Simulated assay, not measured.
Amino acid sequence: MIRAWAAHEAGGKLTPFEYDPGPLPDDEVEIAVETCGLCHSDMSLVDDEWNISAYPLVPGHEIVGRIVEAGPAVKHLKVGDRVGVGWFAHSCLGCHTCMSGQHNLCADATGVASAKKGRFGGFAERVRAQGAWAIPIPDGVDAAKAGPLFCGGLTVFYPFVHYGIRPTDRVGIIGIGGLGHMALKFARAWGCEVTAFTSSPGKEEEAKSLGAHRVVNSRDKDALKAERGRFDMVLSTVNVPLEWARYVQALAPDGRLNFVGAATEPMGLAPIALMGGQAQLSATSVGTPAIAATMLEFCARHGIAPQTEHMKMSQINEAFDHLREGKARYRIVLENDFA
């Protein structure tokens, strides 16, 4: 039996829960969880904000731990390896999409915390994932802080690789939070000119310490207007509706407004607003196993780590409350304390 923390209804508190995972599939590994980051998406799952949840639900998808068992088909990992697992725990590995290297877009891709498909997440003493989705953590990456890299970090790193962002590009980051603070670090290390858009003027110095060259108050319409035609990419990390037309106007010709924050409201943009500068609208998923490994190497090379707060896993409900209240700076990491 595996001990975990589970929600039993939408919006419910997490309580102790045990489940029998059954035999280990040949292509999977079982991981003794050391830490698991707490992501805003965990709240969305617990609250069934996206209408995809089933209960009991064990959330947690920013997992770091050591392999304690590996199926016979797993050849590149062994017992004792320290690995990380993010949003996905499985893809088919045989479809055209997977064979093209886009495992995250596989129609059969399954989340590590997908209770509907019999999977339970990382707020537990152990968790399982397909070997392909268990990413070794290299030397030079602080394992105690690495959990948030496997969702929040990969989510904001992926667009830089996927869209071929260049060191000479000008990049804007909307939001300085769990995703945004890592995006600032990546963009600066990538070599870009980095601008932070924030609605909190008091965050200006902090944004610069995280990597921003410039900070723009997103509540100041004149300040936004002054950015017209500047950016090769604007990356939105927020999950709230904004005046998106102003950010489209801030794009350089052929510029891109890319969404990684899970905003659910319609955008209210007319196609003609995109045509003059050939603006591109896009959204990206959390990234592939190969890009996750590349991201970790990049972090080790540049000394990049998320800014974290640490709590015990038994404090999980306090951690959720802390996140709901907007007090997290900027990612909460829960440490396994199952006796």
Rank of each mutant, 00 (worst) to 15 (best):
A283C: 13
L251C: 08
A262L: 15
M275T: 12
A270M: 10
A279T: 04
G261R: 08
M275L: 14
E265D: 08
A279N: 12
A283K: 08
V248F: 08
R246Y: 14
A290Y: 06
L274I: 04
I272K: 06
M267N: 00
Q249E: 15
A245L: 09
Q280T: 13
Y247L: 09
A245K: 14
R256P: 01
G268L: 03
V248T: 06
L281A: 02
T264F: 04
D254P: 00
G268N: 01
M267H: 05
M275Q: 11
E265V: 02
Q249N: 13
I272P: 00
G268T: 00
R256W: 02
L251S: 05
A279Q: 12
M267K: 03
A252H: 12
L281P: 04
Q249I: 02
A270C: 00
S282H: 08
S282Q: 08
L274Q: 03
A279S: 14
V286E: 02
Y247P: 02
G261S: 08
P253N: 10
T284V: 14
T288F: 00
P289K: 06
R256H: 07
S285K: 10
E265Y: 02
L257K: 06
D254S: 14
Q249L: 12
L269M: 08
A252V: 07
V248G: 01
M267R: 02
Y247R: 07
G255S: 07
A245R: 14
G268K: 04
A273K: 05
V286F: 13
M275A: 10
P271N: 05
L274S: 02
G276H: 10
P271A: 05
I272F: 14
A262H: 13
P253V: 11
P266E: 01
P289W: 09
A273S: 11
A273T: 09
A262R: 10
G287M: 02
Y247E: 04
G255C: 05
P271F: 12
T284N: 11
G287C: 03
G287P: 04
A250C: 11
S282C: 05
P266L: 03
P266A: 01
G255A: 07
T284G: 12
P253Q: 08
V260R: 11
F259L: 09
A252Y: 12
A290C: 01
Q249D: 15
A263M: 13
G277P: 03
Q278D: 07
A263C: 14
A290S: 08
G261H: 10
S285H: 06
E265C: 01
T264I: 07
Y247C: 02
A290N: 03
G277T: 13
N258G: 04
P271T: 05
L274A: 04
P266N: 03
T288P: 01
N258T: 13
T264W: 03
A245S: 12
A250M: 15
G261N: 06
S285E: 01
Q278K: 15
M275V: 11
N258A: 06
L257N: 05
S285C: 05
Q280C: 09
A262P: 03
D254Y: 15
I272R: 10
V248Q: 05
G261C: 09
D254G: 04
A270T: 03
D254Q: 14
R246G: 06
Q249F: 11
V248I: 15
G255I: 08
A262W: 15
V248R: 06
Q249T: 03
P289N: 04
A252D: 13
Q280W: 13
G255N: 08
N258M: 01
A245H: 12
Q280S: 04
D254C: 11
Q278I: 02
L269H: 03
A279H: 14
G287T: 00
